[in-house]
């Protein structure tokens, strides 16, 4: 990964000439960290691989998509999901870390929901996987609570002026946004809750 990429994904919005060396330094430090922790016997390399593999292959937005697909086809399940999302989601086997306490909210023609964590990066890992870089970066964390329409504009999404926006700044509970019904005429998106900001 180049320094340019690093800066871009970082969301700092400007470029540092020394990024490449900074990045190499970080890479070297993490490499040294891993080898010393393994040497000391604090980290089992097989456990490390298992952890990484879990978040690369097992936990991701596909899980959330399955929850929503079930909700669209099963009104009783949908009702359970809105009433108490955590056990409803656990019915499909998705539970645990960063998904311990989930609340589901639904967009309506009048109300658009937006989820943020201004203090860190709280996110329902168990159903959406690890958060994307933009969700964790300063522009979104700073702007969502003050100018959510501006955030939507950054995504190229314009809502009717009369649409109300409910922003959920999450520090304890994880908030999942659900599309209320299945998209008509073919899926617009593979994952109906792939983004905490837009539709």
């Amino acid at each position: 990964m180049s320094g340019h990429d690093h800066d871009h994904h970082d969301g700092h919005g400007h470029h540092h000439d020394h990024d490449h060396s900074e990045l190499s330094e970080t890479e070297l430090r993490v490499r040294a960290l891993e080898s010393i922790l393994v040497e000391k016997g604090y980290v089992d390399p097989a456990a490390l691989d298992e952890l990484i593999q879990t978040y690369e292959t097992k936990v991701g937005p596909r899980n959330g998509a399955r929850v929503i697909a079930k909700a669209w086809n099963d009104p009783a399940y949908y009702a359970r999901l809105l009433k108490d999302a955590t056990p409803a989601i656990a019915e499909l086997g998705y539970e645990g870390r960063q998904g311990e306490h989930i609340v589901a909210v639904v967009n309506t023609p009048d109300t658009h929901n937006m989820v943020v964590c201004t203090l860190c990066s709280c996110y329902p890992w168990s159903v959406l996987g690890l958060p994307p870089v933009w969700y964790k970066a300063a522009p979104y964390r700073s702007k969502a609570v003050r100018d959510p329409r501006g955030v939507l504009d950054d995504f190229g999404v314009a809502l009717p002026q009369q649409t109300k926006i409910k922003v959920w700044d999450s520090f304890a509970m994880s908030w999942c946004r659900c599309a209320p019904t299945a998209p008509r005429g073919g899926a617009r998106s593979n994952s109906p809750i792939s983004s905490p900001a837009t539709a």
Binding site: H6, E56, W134
Partner: peptide, 28 residues
């Protein structure tokens, strides 16, 4: 802080060191 800039088809990690960092943090 400027515009929110989503990345198209974003990978789970941007580089090997991020992958290791997540694992080390959870393991420790």
């Amino acid at each position: 802080f400027g515009k929110v800039e989503p990345e198209v088809n974003e990978p789970v990690f941007h580089g090997e060191w991020e992958r290791r960092m997540l694992g080390l943090t959870l393991a420790m």
